[in-house]
Each structure stands twice: as C-alpha cells, then as structure tokens.
Simulated scan of single mutants.
Amino acid sequence: MKAVDVRAMSADQLNDELAKLKKEQFNLRFQKATGQLEKSSRIQEVRRDIARVKTIARQKAAEAKA
C-alpha cells in the first residue's frame, strides 16, 4: 500500500482500512503460532501499513483542527 493511496481515503475509509489490517495482523500472528504461516514477510508489511494508516489519519485530524 502506497502513502498516496492512503492519503486519497476519507477518515471513515481510513478507519475501515485500519480495522481490516488489524484483523489481518491477528490472523497472521495466529498462523505463525500454529506453524501455518507461509510468507513471514507479510507480517512486517502489515505492521508498516498499520503505521502508515495511523500516521496519515493523525495528520488529517490535525489539518481538520487547524
């Protein structure tokens, strides 16, 4: 996921995307614990996507306040 794509989303879309990513992160951690995880690099990608979404959501909230 690119930052440009995330910036194009509205606040509601960002919240939905964040929920989706957190659910995926949980599923990946569960797969890792049970030994079913095939692509371990996906965990890091999802963590970075979560951080990206949170950062941009916070920036948009600050812009709306100002």
Rank of each mutant, 00 (worst) to 15 (best):
S10W: 00
K23Y: 05
L37R: 06
F26R: 10
F30I: 03
K20R: 15
S41E: 15
E45C: 06
L28S: 04
T55F: 05
I56A: 02
Q25E: 12
E17H: 06
A62R: 13
I43Q: 06
R7L: 08
V53Y: 02
A11F: 07
Q13M: 13
Q25G: 03
Q25S: 11
L21D: 02
R52F: 03
R42P: 01
T55R: 14
A66E: 12
V46H: 00
Q59P: 02
K54L: 09
T34P: 00
E38G: 05
Q59I: 11
D16P: 00
V53K: 03
D5E: 07
I50W: 01
A33T: 06
F30H: 11
K20V: 03
T34C: 03
A62M: 08
Q44F: 03
S41N: 15
E63T: 08
A57Y: 00
K39A: 11
F30D: 15
L37C: 05
R52Y: 01
N27M: 15
I50G: 01
N27R: 13
E63K: 11
L18H: 09
D12L: 12
A19G: 14
R58T: 14
A64T: 07
V4R: 11
I56D: 02
R48E: 13
A51S: 08
D12S: 12
K20C: 05
K39L: 10
F26N: 12
R42V: 08
E38C: 03
Q36K: 14
R47E: 14
K60C: 04
A62I: 10
L37Q: 08
Q31T: 03
A66C: 03
E17D: 08
K20F: 10
T55M: 12
V46T: 10
Q59E: 13
K22W: 03
K65A: 15
A61H: 05
A19D: 05
A3N: 11
